[in-house]
């Protein structure tokens, strides 16, 4: 008897959990579905009220239009290069900085760390102008380098990884010192492998942020040959009129690499975000 009651209860709560989860899935997946459906509609269908959900005829012309009006291959290339460079740069530079803040005692360490933290408190738009002027003085305006340079290092990444390194027991390090390791060996051979979840989280955040970054590429670069996907897509929006089916077709083309990446690294994504949820 008891067992049965228990079983029933379990099922009941399971159904509830599933209902909530299904609701969540509907909420998250609807915009994606809508984007894909709209990308196959004609312009007339896309503006109809009440909305037409399934287009009468799936027209691929929108994809053709998107690809013919925008140099997608160049956009892919620029976006991939800048995303990889920024991600690798952040993982290496931030982890190095984080290691020294977490483990090496040097004069002025705390003050420098507070300075870096203060960067986190300032909204990003404030950096727009000084960064633009620096890039201009470096002569890098309208280059791929301009997309990458300001994103190579971040205060957020340093802070995240420093907190992560702090949780790694000091004993491991002491053992390594006894064995004759210098700081770089400790950082590279001991800390880095142990900090893998933190590094993954940082890599994921950087990649996502870099892929979606809109304002910076638009401001610092002017020609289509040096634009990223998100910036190039934004130019499909007119002041008064926007061809939404074409814009959605472009968006589908722009996000699929990230979706594929997500499917491959799903576990790390979830772990990474859960991790920063508790630590950050």
């Amino acid at each position: 008897m008891k067992k049965d009651v228990h079983k029933f209860k379990l099922n009941y709560s399971k159904i509830l959990v599933h209902l909530i989860l299904i609701l969540g899935v509907i909420f998250t997946i609807t915009p994606f579905l809508w984007m894909i459906l709209t990308s196959f509609k004609t312009l007339t269908e896309s503006t109809m009220i009440p909305p037409i959900i399934i287009p009468k005829r799936f027209c691929f012309e929108n994809y053709k239009d998107a690809v013919s009006t925008l140099p997608f291959l160049t956009f892919y290339k620029n976006t991939i290069i800048s995303t990889i460079a920024k991600t690798v740069g952040q993982v290496i530079l931030c982890s190095m900085a984080a290691y020294s803040f977490a483990r090496i005692e040097f004069p002025g360490r705390d003050i420098i760390f507070i300075l870096i933290l203060s960067v986190l408190m300032v909204p990003g738009q404030i950096f727009l102008l000084p960064q633009y002027i620096i890039i201009k003085k470096l002569g890098l305006l309208n280059t791929i380098g301009a997309l990458i340079l300001p994103g190579l290092f971040s205060a957020f990444g340093t802070f995240l990884l420093r907190q992560f390194f702090m949780t790694i027991p000091k004993e491991l390090e002491e053992a390594a010192i006894l064995d004759g390791c210098n700081h770089f060996r400790i950082y590279w051979n001991i800390m880095m492998p142990l900090a893998k979840p933190g590094l993954t989280a940082l890599a994921i955040f950087t990649a996502l942020w870099s892929w979606n970054d809109l304002l910076w590429p638009l401001i610092v670069n002017t020609s289509n040959e040096k634009m990223t996907l998100s910036a190039g897509l934004a130019s499909l929006q007119g002041q008064h009129l926007t061809n939404f089916p074409v814009l959605m077709a472009g968006s589908v083309l722009a996000i699929w690499p990230m979706i594929v990446l997500y499917i491959i690294f799903q576990k790390s994504f979830v772990e990474g975000i859960a991790l920063t949820g508790t630590k950050g």
Binding site: A85, V88, G89, I92, L140, L141, T143, I144, A146
Partner: peptide
């Protein structure tokens, strides 16, 4: 690391052309 470096260099190269 190599990719990172190469993007830097390519950045420099475009600077020269400009």
């Amino acid at each position: 690391v190599l990719i990172l470096l190469s993007t830097f260099l390519s950045g420099c190269r475009t600077k020269d052309t400009s």
